[in-house]
Design a protein around this nucleic acid. Structure first.
Length: 647
RNA sequence: GCCGGUGUAGCUCAGUUGGCCAGAGCAGCUGAUUUGUAAUCAGCUGGUCGGGGGUUCGAAUCCCUCCACCGGCUCCA
């Protein structure tokens, strides 16, 4: 007998060789029906794997990540089985579970596969699922596995096998499909009751652009049809928050083929919103000791040769501009830092001056690959809320710390809670991708890691994600459809000061080299506004929203009174517009609601006589009547609460 | 950039297997209505069916090409 310890601490004695499923059945038949996988001593396994020693056991049901990914992994195998049955001779690369389902990379051997084929595959998957074929695990020698795939003529799986050690190799078979796989899997295909293929896309083999492109098919699988239905509804809801859709509906921004792809045009409401965000940050930066600077949109090519950007990105950038007479070569500014370096150099610096903090809402232009452009989150012309801090080595940690505080202040004010802090370091395997001395890199990486730790940030370390000149600390958030984007960023740079030969005179009266910190709390105004739109589903905080109040006269007899009211509100710094159309109030309300205007004032006979306001709140309805003064302080309180929440 | 998909009025969409002068709702304009908490009524305007080329007696519908957008991949100073 062996002792199985369950998460609640209870110990069950079972025969050696019993399976996790046996344990589940011994607890309750209800649990046995729901359980999908087992976590044995911290490792997720098949329910059918026998246990021979004392172990900690957690039975995993759908709500456990481990169970979900197990079922999705099995879904990938089920999809592969269906595909192989429908398209004989196709070859498979890998088919892992991912965050929202699974995918499988397939070589269709030149045959086209598109969304039109989804239906057929889904039907086949469900048909195979109903057969309740068990997922059978089998240990196999490397030689036998190689022989199996040689006979199949499958170069992809042979390639995978190359990297595996004999003795660790397992096959899983369900129905007629056998796959090289370490598992785990659900007991049988019958656990999958609902499937849907989500999309199909090209994916380079091994993620390398120079390799052949395989067909990647994404899908989801669920143990209940209802779960799939709910998932699809959720996706629909998320699409409604998409900033590209809301940006159009709320008249925030647009694009024009004629202007060029990836070059956003800010409409008046969007521009107002953005200006308010900028002013908010300008004020915070002023308090934090930043000084504004302004630099042009182009710069001499020499500037970027000095900075190293030309060597690194020159060929992949918008191409140089030449002056007609002198033949001088200029580049569209892809970065603000070289310009700021030259500002630093414009006069001698003393250690007493440091840190120097130059801030600029600097618009930069980058030739992003056409397939990468995406709404406002990835564009070719955008404005960074950039600043460069020039400081001594001793000041680096404190400055980084202050920048992080600034980002957190902004996130808190705008109620961004769901973010991840990514610490991007060098990839030790590819030193050729980076410039600068090892010693400087060491210093910078250590500083960033230490500050992140001291701040108690929830960080993930990413090797190989550093900028070519230094490590980064990025605040990552998700958009409505689950994609991750970088917003706030802090980057330490020992490199540019060297390239630009920046100096300051120390207390020892000798020249020293400053350290540079690049930082942008929003990241770019475009991306930040995009994420903000999605975050609040277009219902902006009252202090930011372009139109805070819409005045709705009941008939045109009251327009004049409303105009007076508008002026009064303006004196209170309340942004109000009048809907003057000869429409019924119901329609005006409906449209104000759809425009997500926070407050509506319905003005008719009663209001004109009494001077009171009939107030309606967007999304909530009638708030009753109040005086203008009461309304103004009501608005004021709401804004105050929003802006002071960090205190 | 690569793979796949999409592209019809300002917006959202219909347009059977190629076949009358290409349709609807909303928006816009004109007029009527003067309205009490999510759509008042009527009339009108508006599209070289993404651009170009081709097949055909005939193309929004089929083919080629370019452009843009969408979903991924790769990239992201």
């Amino acid at each position: 007998m062996i002792n199985i310890t369950l998460p609640d601490g209870t110990v069950r004695q079972v025969e050696s060789g019993a399976t996790s499923m046996d344990v589940a059945e011994s607890i309750s038949s209800g649990l046995a029906r729901k359980v999908l996988a087992a976590e044995v001593n911290g490792e997720v396994r098949d329910l059918g794997r026998p246990i021979f020693e004392d172990a900690d056991l957690k039975l995993l049901t759908w709500d456990d990540e481990g169970a979900k990914s197990t079922l999705w992994h099995s879904g990938a195998h089920l999809m592969a089985e269906a595909l192989e049955a429908l398209y004989p001779g196709i070859k498979f690369w890998v088919g892992p579970p991912v965050e929202n389902g699974f995918y499988y990379d397939v070589d269709f051997g030149g045959a086209a596969f598109s969304e039109k084929d989804f239906d057929l595959v889904e039907k086949k998957m469900l048909e195979l699922a109903r057969q309740k074929n068990p997922y059978v695990r089998k240990d196999i020698t490397k030689a036998d596995a190689m022989a199996f795939y040689k006979e199949k003529g499958d170069e992809y799986k042979l390639d995978l096998l190359e990297g595996l050690e004999d003795g660790t190799i397992t096959f899983y078979t369900q129905g007629n499909f056998t796959d090289l796989c370490r598992g785990p899997h659900i007991p049988d295909t019958g656990y999958i009751r609902a499937v849907k293929l989500m999309n199909v896309a090209g994916a380079y083999w091994k993620g390398d652009e120079s390799n052949k492109q395989l067909t990647r098919i994404y899908g989801v699988a669920f143990p209940k049809q209802k779960m799939l239905d709910e998932y699809l509804v959720m996706l629909e809801e998320a699409k409604k928050r998409d900033h590209r859709k809301l940006g159009k509906e709320l008249d925030l921004f647009t694009f024009s083929e004629k202007v060029g792809q990836g070059l956003p045009l800010w409409l008046p409401k969007g521009a107002q919103l953005r200006a308010r965000l900028e002013n908010f940050l300008k004020e915070a930066q002023r308090k934090a000791g930043y000084e504004p600077v302004i630099t042009p949109h182009i710069g001499n090519k020499e500037l970027y040769i000095t900075s190293g950007h030309f060597a690194k990105y020159g060929a992949d950038s918008f191409q140089p501009i030449e002056t007609p007479a002198e033949g001088e070569v200029y580049l569209l500014k892809p970065m603000n830092c070289p310009h700021h370096c030259e500002i630093y150099k414009s006069r001698p610096r003393s250690y007493r001056d440091l840190p120097v903090r130059y801030a600029e809402f600097g618009t930069v232009y980058r030739y992003e690959q056409s397939g990468e452009l995406h709404g406002l989150t990835r564009v070719r012309g955008f404005t960074q809320d950039d600043a460069h801090i020039f400081c001594t080595v001793d000041q680096v940690k404190e400055e980084v710390s202050k920048v992080i505080d600034l980002v957190l202040y902004i996130f808190q004010t705008l109620d961004f809670q769901d973010y991840q802090v990514q610490v991007s370091l060098r990839d030790p395997e590819t030193p050729e991708k980076y410039i600068g001395s090892d010693e400087n890199w060491e210093n910078a990486e250590t500083a960033i890691r230490e500050v992140a730790e001291e701040k108690g940030l929830n960080t993930v370390i990413e090797l190989g994600e550093a900028a070519f000149y230094g490590p980064k600390l990025d605040f990552m958030v998700r958009d409505a459809i689950g994609r991750k984007w970088q917003l706030g960023t802090v980057q330490i740079d020992y490199n540019l000061p060297e390239r630009f030969e920046l100096e300051y005179t120390g207390a020892d009266n000798a020249p020293h080299r400053p350290v540079m910190i690049h930082r942008a709390p929003f990241g770019s105004m475009e991306r930040f506004v995009a994420i903000l739109v999605e975050h609040c589903a277009g219902k902006f905080p009252l202090w930011l929203t372009p139109e805070q109040v819409r005045i709705l006269p009941l008939s045109d007899r009251f327009i004049e009174y409303c105009e007076g009211l508008e002026k009064v509100l303006d004196n209170y710094d309340i942004r109000a517009l009048i809907d003057r159309r000869a429409e019924k109030v119901g329609k005006k309300i409906r449209e104000a609601e759809l425009d997500k205007v926070p407050y509506m004032l319905i003005i008719g006979e009663k209001e004109a006589e009494s001077g009171e306001l009939a107030v309606r709140k967007q999304g909530e309805g009638d708030l009753g009547t109040m005086s203008v003064e009461a309304f103004a302080s009501f608005i004021d309180d709401e804004i105050g609460a929003l802006l002071n929440k960090q205190e």
